[in-house]
Amino acid sequence: MKSNLILPTGKISQIRGKCISLIGNDIDTDRIIPARFLKCVNFDSLGKFVFEDDRKTLKGMHPLDLEENKDASILIVNSNFGCGSSREHAPQALMRWGIKGIIGESFAEIFYSNCIAIGIPCFTLSKKSIQVLQKKNNNKILFLEIDLKNSIAKSKNLILDLGIKESTKKMFLSGDWDATSNLLKNSSLVEKKLKELPYIRFNAES
């Protein structure tokens, strides 16, 4: 885990770093951060508990514990990563461990939106390409340079077209991925909407 953690802010157009592969479909958020670690009122100390039970089971042999992966920042995963609980603690824990971007075959929906909300871009790639990446990464160091604008990942002898929604990409490139400021701009429209909704009226009357 990185000690000099800098949380993402503003425009994100490039992610460069070492890859770390976690193999398995349907890796749920209970595994990413077991529920007992949700007993906290801030996210600060979550990084060291990421995948705690999986790591304990593998006694130092979990990818997150291998010396060569200590400073990795791009996570390579398989299908339906982050399914289950909506806990934002899961991407927060990954981020605080040092993850800056995730490439996977597919993501669970709430996990994906939580990642976007905290500034971790998630990219999709075909099952085959993920397997190629994970194989290349197996016991070897793999550096990737992700270029958001062109949605590609590059390394020596390798160029991959990454999948990312055009709208999501735009948000990262413009720095608008932190939704609150955009939502706040429409305050008067929100107040108008409140007055229009039928149930607001009949619930207020009773």
């Binding site: 909506s86 934002e88 603690h89 939106s113 939580n114 909300a117 905290i118 609150t180 939502l183 305050s187």
Partner: peptide, 11 residues
């Protein structure tokens, strides 16, 4: 997620 809880509270 919690960031969206923040958004709902604020907006």
């Amino acid at each position: 997620g919690t960031s969206q809880v923040r958004d709902v509270l604020a907006t």
